[in-house]
């Protein structure tokens, strides 16, 4: 009863809020009717498609196309037409190294530092992320009461903004923060988490896992719950040991989801920026400087500014992402085909 009353109240409230909007929509009708009359249905399809595709074209497709041209220009001018064509100079500059094994010898050593940092970050973060997400999903898939509550617990940080995530952890990891207090209580020496290079890097990995693991756990949980219960019952009838059930039933059937999660985390890890930028600012030194931050700083920070170089670096990153995305689309398509059968 009350639920029904609530929905009817909500409906009425919605109707009141929507009233002016509905009026506006009605005002649109006569001119659009004329358009339909003279243009026919195809023109109407174009009309419906136009706003989105216009915005999409101007703010996504056009920049995407122009980026290649942009990366072949030099100087500090903003608009492509004012920029000087330099061919592949920017790429040459990025790859100009005395000795490829030592990034100090490169002309753009900062770029290679970012590449190196990002690669190490990707390896560490992705393996940690997939591992933790898998364990969490397995735990959540057990016969728990209040599963949705526990699911929500792990999902909570996913919604937080990167700035909030960065600041929360900066507060906890600071010299006199909660973590050091805990260590002090346990009799350990406090650590200067965000000032020591390796700890800062570890913090970047840990915090980004903390912030996103709930999302991937959720995808894996959905995959686990899609595995038919009968399979487990059959395995139990056969007297299969739990470990074997995991390796022979759970893991193979979860593989499609696991692959999706793996590629998604890879794609995201390559682009890591916001929360680490707020947490460490790329420091100490350049120990947590990642590719996106490099692009941002070369593209926009005044002292290093070289938009062409940033654009070239962003294209290189884009190529990596395209490969990963194609990989992901391939997996999804294969999963769909399997699901279809």
């Amino acid at each position: 009863m009350t639920a029904q009353a609530n929905t009817s109240i909500a409906r009425r409230a919605g109707a009141i809020i929507m009233a002016p909007v509905a009026l506006l929509a009605r005002a649109f009708d006569p001119p659009l009717r004329m358009l339909q009359k003279f243009g026919g249905t195809n023109v109407m399809a174009a009309f419906f498609l136009a706003p989105n595709m216009l915005i999409f074209g101007v703010f996504v497709l056009f920049p995407l196309a122009v980026n290649i041209a942009y990366s072949m220009t030099g100087g500090n001018a903003l608009f492509l037409t004012n920029r000087e064509f330099v061919g592949l100079d920017q790429y040459e500059r990025l790859f100009d190294c005395g000795n490829y094994l030592d990034r100090q010898t490169c002309r753009e050593d900062l770029f290679w530092t970012a590449v190196w940092n990002t690669s190490s970050f990707v390896v560490l973060q992705v393996s940690l992320m997939v591992g933790v997400a898998l364990v969490t999903a397995l735990v959540l898939n057990r016969d728990l009461k209040a599963r949705s509550f526990w699911r929500a617990v792990f999902f909570f940080p996913v919604l937080l903004s990167p700035v909030v995530v960065g600041l929360i952890w900066r507060w906890i990891l600071q010299r006199q923060g909660l973590l050091n207090f805990g260590l002090y209580e346990l009799g350990f020496e406090p650590v200067n988490w965000l000032v020591e290079r390796n700890w800062a890097f570890a913090a970047a990995v840990g915090v980004s896992v903390w912030a996103h693991v709930g999302f991937y756990a959720l995808i894996l949980l959905a995959g686990l719950q899609a595995i038919p219960k009968e399979l487990y019952e059959a395995a139990e009838m056969d007297g299969t040991k739990p470990g074997r059930v995991f390796w022979r039933i759970t893991l193979p059937l979860l593989m499609p989801n696991l692959l999706v999660v793996l590629v998604l985390t890879l794609i995201r890890a390559v682009q890591i920026f916001d929360e680490v930028y707020v947490l460490t600012g790329g420091g100490p030194g350049t120990s947590t400087l990642f590719l996106t931050q490099y692009i941002y700083e070369v593209g926009f920070a005044s002292h290093l500014r070289n938009p062409g170089l940033a654009s070239a670096a962003s294209i290189l990153m884009g190529l990596v992402l395209i490969v990963l995305t194609l990989f992901q689309l391939g997996i999804v398509r294969r999963n769909d085909r399997r699901g279809g059968k």
Binding site: P63, F273, S314
Partner: peptide, 9 residues
């Protein structure tokens, strides 16, 4: 991050 530079212009 792949299009920020031209998008900015």
């Amino acid at each position: 991050s792949v299009i920020i530079v031209p998008l900015y212009s």
